[in-house]
Structures are given as structure tokens and as C-alpha cells.
Design a protein around this nucleic acid. Sequence first.
DNA 1: CTGGATCCCAGGCGATACTG
DNA 2: CAGTATCGCCTGGGATCCAG
Lengths: 134, 134
Amino acid sequence: MTREHQSNRPLFPDVPPGAPLDAGQCPIRDVLDRVAQKWTLLILIALERGPQRFSALQRQVGDISKRMLTQTLRQLERDGMISREVFPTKPPSVEYALTDLGRSALNPIAALRDWADENHGRINEARKAFDMAA
Amino acid sequence: MTREHQSNRPLFPDVPPGAPLDAGQCPIRDVLDRVAQKWTLLILIALERGPQRFSALQRQVGDISKRMLTQTLRQLERDGMISREVFPTKPPSVEYALTDLGRSALNPIAALRDWADENHGRINEARKAFDMAA
DNA sequence: CTGGATCCCAGGCGATACTG
DNA sequence: CAGTATCGCCTGGGATCCAG
């Protein structure tokens, strides 16, 4: 196996000389890179309300193209975070829902969302102050 | 003021017909977009250990270029998440550290990190299963 | 040693049009 | 309705050189 990441803290083991810890070696990096995608968090948070249909998701997020919505949903499905169920109705409909894994991920994600909600004011102040000084 | 986001849950208010909630209108989106940057979380997590110097950070992350490290650090500084202190030693050194705001952000972020640590196995299994089916 | 400035390319992502 | 296919832009980000 490649380098494993046994304990959770610290995230980055001390780097042996000349052996930088590059991406793809650290499984946590892998998951974090998923988070660092433009639409992943938004969609997961949108699904917190319960199962959603494709177009409902698109309307909720507002400014996501069908292309990126599809792509992100596929990736989340592949990762086991959401399920996809097709209903063969007259105009076919598809419902997406969080899996257990997805719901468990939503705990830290919702915490992040709440942090953002509570602190975006402070961040904006910091930005103004910073831009003033410059 | 532009549209405000009063309660934390739900993240996305129901969209009035024809008025999509686009980015820049929702302050939470703004913060979340920062998180959805390739290096932001990595650097914040790296700083959990305590103040770090530029080169130490670069070694810890492993595969980040000076350019992106500088850029991300500047942005985090501007957001009030980290502080930057210059020591006018013979070869000058600079130390970066979390501010109170940054430390408070680290709570949900570390939770996410820990979630990733605990569940990347399940994710990999899900991916294999998905790729098999395809 | 810590960065800033420039150059340049890959690919992420949006826009649009088309299908079952 | 729920996608897929194609095109092309734009910018994220690496490489390199330079400065304090």
C-alpha cells in the first residue's frame, strides 16, 4: 500500500527529508479535495431538507448549470454520499437523497455552514480593514 | 442592502418565481466559496499545530507552489483568519498563526477532517462498487 | 528566506443545442 | 423532465525569474 494515515491528528505527518507528502498519498487529502469543489457542499446542504428532484436542486442552488449539477451528483453518488432513484412516471422523474454516509458527513458540513452564518460579518469587517490599510 | 440571510437553516430560502438566488447575494455562499478552494483547508489545518513559517507550511502541505501558498495566505489574512508577523532577522522570517476567528473556524474544519479520516474507507468501497456496476 | 511579477498552459465550468 | 454532447472561454495554478 501507499503511505497510510493512521492517526487523525496531525493531518500531515512530519515529512522525512526529501519525501514531500503529495496528493493522492493521503486519503484525507482525497476527501478534502472533494469538499474543495465548487458545488459539492451546496448540493449536500440542499439535500439536508430531504429528497430532492433534479430541477428542484437546480432551482435551490440558483446558479448552477445542468452540466455541473449532473456531474456533481454523479460524483457524490459514486462516493456513496447520495442515492439516485428513478421513477418511471409519464415524464420521468429522479429523486436524489442523502445516504447514511451522506447524512453523517452533513454533521461537520452543517457545522461549517452555521459557522459561516455566524461569522461572515466578522469576515467582511476584516476584509474592509485589510483593504483600508492597503 | 442586498438580500440577507437571517436564519441559518435553511441555507437556501425558497426561491420566488423567476428570482434565482445567485452567488454574491448570499453571505454564506461567500464563505463556502472560500472553503471550496484547493488549499484553504489544508493550510488552516496545518496551522492547527501552532504558528508556522512559510517554508514549514510549504513542506507540510508538500505539493503546493510558492505562488499558491502566498496567494492563499494573503486571502486568509485578509479574511482575518490568520495573522502574519515578520521577524527582521538576518535572513528575514515570517510566521503565520491562526487568529481567534481562525481558531473558531477550525472547530468545524477539524470535525470535517476527522470525518474524512474515519470514512475515507467507506468512500473508497463505494467508489469501487460503483465502478464495478458501470 | 520570504515572497512578488510574468508567462503560459490545462481543464473547470458555463452556454447552448439536442435526445429519450 | 432529466439528462448528454459540443464548444469555447476564462482563470486556477505551475514554472521561472527577480527582489528585499
